[in-house]
Write a protein that binds this DNA or RNA. Structure first.
Lengths: 222, 222
DNA sequence: TCAAAAGTGTTTGTGGTACACCCATGG
DNA sequence: CCATGGGTGTACCACAAACACTTTTGA
């Protein structure tokens, strides 16, 4: 294929979510270089010529100190003006990480830290739109698949799980209904261990990796 | 941004679906040039430097003789080996067209015609994977949104609508339940006209453009 | 009057939601 | 013994699924 057309740049960006302090947070890096030097952005970088898109996204995760996490492709943003320098098409992934790991500023980043999704700073490029879209998708998936477990450590109590859902969905849930439904769904199992603390100790559960993690959507039409 | 990295090619490809002869069909074009000359492929082409991705996809549609149709971004495929010549990342859209319009072979195509999704020829590149994924997504969306109407002409009978759903979903549906549910959902309205033919004439309906076209998914957790 | 397709209701089961109290532990 | 969070059941309503016959027209 002769280069009959000039080629745009292609990057991957990753929206990395976690739960910290009963809050849904996203990892942002502070840009070192122009454009938008000093502005916060989601981690990202160029796709190498011999590298699958998903591998590029995992490389970005690792540069931020995050590995072995749930990740899926979100959407591709390609507005011609989204980068002021040249045409950059970005394939965005989103990732869910289970714990408030230490993060580091890799590559082009001067700094990296977690920000509440409900209180974001001004962002570089179209990253505010990207995070809007990512949150919508996260909430949506949470409602009909079991991705929520990827935001929690390996073992957790039912109250912690419920809190996680409440934080992401931005709404309160009924304790008895939550417990009945999640236990009926057979996606978690008891570990036999208890977590002690204030009040009565709570059973620790783990996610069953053999669980059917998706529920059939209620159909609009029969 | 200096070109610190070589840039891949970026294309858009479009999976265009319609209903013909009580069958779900997809528009394929016969490739004129190498690689895969003579093989069938979904329509696609390069993204121009000043062109939004969706505009590029609509341009591909128009080159195939299709316009004013439902379209959404599907997924981005970027395996380094998916094109034997060089790195090509493709952003795939899918489109639903209402009628078996005449189609034409635009651009690099020697020929263009409709093929049954249930009986496809050998395809170029990774287009078989792409269509697999597109069908899964189409079925999924059909179940919880009203995109199905975009496969039908402006007016249609309930039997035609039901048939459309059955063909796409690959399963039979109960007539009374189908009718009750779709009428209760208030997404279609009577036109007052009837379609005559063999047997009793059938009321013609049209899609209500003000309809709420999405239903809340059954949630895995409360 | 027959063939062909359109149209129409009821019953039964399952899942969703709302709601308030007792239990086990640590201090 | 009290404060704290953990854990439990039931009643009502809405929606899903199964199921068979009558109506209207053209030939």
């Amino acid at each position: 294929m002769p280069k009959r057309f000039p080629h745009p740049s292609v990057t991957v960006d990753v929206a990395i979510f976690t739960l910290r302090d009963d809050d849904l947070q996203v990892l942002l890096v502070k840009r070192k270089a122009a454009p938008y030097a000093g502005r916060w952005a989601i981690p990202g970088g160029f796709v190498r010529m011999d590298e699958p898109l998903e591998a590029a996204a995992r490389r970005e995760l690792e540069e931020s100190g995050v590995r072995d996490v749930y990740m899926e492709q979100l959407y591709t943003f390609g507005d011609p003006k989204r980068d002021p320098r040249e045409r950059v098409i970005t394939v965005v992934y989103f990732a869910l990480v289970p714990a408030p790991l230490a993060v580091r500023a890799g590559g082009d980043a001067a700094d990296a830290c977690w920000w509440s999704m409900y209180d974001l700073p001004a962002l570089a490029f179209d990253h505010a739109d990207i995070l809007d879209y990512a949150l919508t998708r996260l909430r949506y998936k949470l409602e009909y698949t079991a991705v929520g477990f990827h935001l929690l450590p390996e073992t957790f109590t039912l109250s912690e799980l419920q809190k996680a859902y409440e934080v992401v969905l931005g709404a309160g849930l009924d304790k008895r209904n939550f417990r009945r439904k999640i236990l009926d769904a057979q996606v978690i199992e008891e570990t036999g261990e208890y977590r002690t603390g204030e009040g009565r100790p709570a059973m620790l559960y783990r996610y069953r990796s053999d669980a059917v993690a998706e529920v059939r959507a209620r159909r609009l039409f029969p």
